[in-house]
Design a protein around this nucleic acid. Structure first.
Lengths: 176, 176
DNA sequence: CCTGCCATGTAACGAGTTACATGATTTC
DNA sequence: GAAATCATGTAACTCGTTACATGGCAGG
């Protein structure tokens, strides 16, 4: 996952590992955190695979290691980006893809967002079924907080579906 | 984390590894998934630490490995449960603690929930600051989807705060 | 008798964190 | 000249997954 985020970052412009960390912190820290201990090895790995290329650049006297995306890297990133977002993985890590959705063409993006929305609707149905089972089989008083996490899930998925609707229509989110 | 969830499950009643997986699936699958490949080793580890005790029981001819929590295990679980929920870890994994909050006494629970709510409020402020930076420094049109993930974060945190308010007051969540 | 679920486990791997080590450069 | 931040990296570790292996029991 982080591998592709890094690839997506250097896709915008050449960066150092340090830069990438700052970008992640200021952009997708809601979903994802990265430590140097994972970033630097990933950059090396990507370089070995030929998806990025490293070059040294001296800003003043100081030399920094900049990374540049290759054609192959761009292709790999594109494939990842156009793979539908999975919802079944518990934590919404995959959602990070949408951060890069400005790069997609309108019809492709629309298709992917609609699909993601549908997945959420399906998942929501599953949660409602779970709710029914709970309500039928258990003493509500003793299980208030057990049930509450289920309702939390329901609310979050509902909110996610609303958000999908809004960004599909490209509504101005700052006014809502 | 999963270690404590397992501990929490056997705290309710003696269970087999298989049972625990089913309970997790029907209860906290929204936040957490567990595989047998992690469950069974964790049970062994807990047994080695003396936090649970295993015994065999023959249901018919078939023998199953049941796990029973020890006093020490109960204590360890309690300490974990009463440790405030962290919000800074990106994925809301820690939220799973609330699943077990029925076990807490009202005042302790209230204290912990209010604290969690406050942490969310603080986190939300940080997101609004990020928003300001974004809006000031970047071209809104080219960065619609980058901004949208930030707004998603804002909405989710807002929803989480609302949910905290509701469960602190022990509102009936099914009617909302 | 065979399919599907119950039940337990292990080995290899993956993804990322924490803590440490190092040193340069900027800012006060 | 001290402190903060820039900048790069490694080693040990944690936590978990995937895939495999094994076998029992139940219902059609």
């Amino acid at each position: 996952m982080l591998e592709y985020i890094v690839l997506g970052m250097v896709n915008y412009e050449d960066m150092t590992g340090y830069d990438i960390k700052k970008y992640i912190e200021s952009g997708i820290s809601v979903f994802y955190k990265a430590s140097f201990g994972s970033l630097y090895p990933i950059l090396k790995k990507l370089a070995n695979k030929g998806l990025v290329a490293m070059y040294e650049s001296n800003h003043g006297d100081r030399k920094k290691n900049y990374y540049h995306i290759t054609d192959e890297g761009r292709k790999a990133f594109e494939i990842w980006l156009e793979t539908p977002i999975m919802i079944d993985d518990g934590n919404g890590t995959q959602l990070v893809k949408i951060y890069f959705y400005d790069l997609l063409q309108e019809d492709k993006r629309r298709e992917l967002l609609i699909r993601y929305r549908e997945n959420n609707v399906t998942y929501l149905k599953g949660l409602y079924e779970l709710e029914e089972q709970y309500v039928n089989t258990r003493n509500k008083d003793c299980y208030y907080y057990k049930l509450s996490v289920l309702y939390y899930g329901i609310r979050i998925i509902k909110e996610t579906i609303k958000w999908c609707d809004d960004i599909i229509e490209r509504k101005d989110l700052s006014e809502i």
